[in-house]
Design a protein around this nucleic acid. Sequence first.
DNA 1: CATCTATTTGCGCAATTAGGCAAATAATGA
DNA 2: TCATTATTTGCCTAATTGCGCAAATAGATG
Lengths: 130, 130
Amino acid sequence: MVATKNSASPLAGLSEQALAHVAEYFQALADPMRLRILNTLRSGEHNVGELTELCGCSTANVSRHLAALAKQGMVGRESRGTSVYYSIADASIYALCDLVCCNIARQFEQQASVHKSFTKATQKRGRNHP
Amino acid sequence: MVATKNSASPLAGLSEQALAHVAEYFQALADPMRLRILNTLRSGEHNVGELTELCGCSTANVSRHLAALAKQGMVGRESRGTSVYYSIADASIYALCDLVCCNIARQFEQQASVHKSFTKATQKRGRNHP
DNA sequence: CATCTATTTGCGCAATTAGGCAAATAATGA
DNA sequence: TCATTATTTGCCTAATTGCGCAAATAGATG
């Protein structure tokens, strides 16, 4: 691994591999059904069958999505009896999602009130659609 | 929009559309080259040609990636002369990336400890040489 | 062991996507 | 005007991805 070690921020000076790793992490979150699963797991652990019902998704796909999330260390796996229970392994995921939701909410606000001026600066900011 | 759950957090009770929107947001971050572009923009605004050189990517692709980032409101666009300058429009992106990097660093630590010798107790955390 | 249930995985298909190449567009200057 | 530079976009290909279906595994119970 070629670490450039520019310690301005964790993102600064990342190697190709590290960048790919971060991208994979985001990729795991870039699916509505996986987000739904994570959201469902917020209330506590659930097995695959429960998630299948709660998320309205086939068992096979829930299993696959859980595998993808587990690969990124987002959820933990625990076999109990004939079932496999999954739970959130990294609560900071929700911090990520909350940040994104805030950003998107902000976008919606801006979109909703294009002609209103609630931005403090009077600059013309990125409202450009061809 | 159908809110199905109590709103303990922004992620809770998200409609299908909102969930898809969040997923799209993460999707925009789920590419190494786009992360590299964002990382490069951290030092300040750059035009497409500069980013092409700094990121080692073709002009067309840089342009496309920038369009994807702009679509999510992550970067802003400003034409000056014959060039188009892009800059970070939402600094909270870096908070996202930093969170992810911390999570991944943690993963690396755990992987490293496990890989090194699984006979040791995993409560010692002294493994950090990126 | 046989069997049932729960979960995982292999395979194929349809849809999406990143990248290369070239043509099209925009802005500047002779 | 035409030429030049900078950026965007259309088209194509290769690779990836999510899903449905069915077969395969793992664990518990008779």
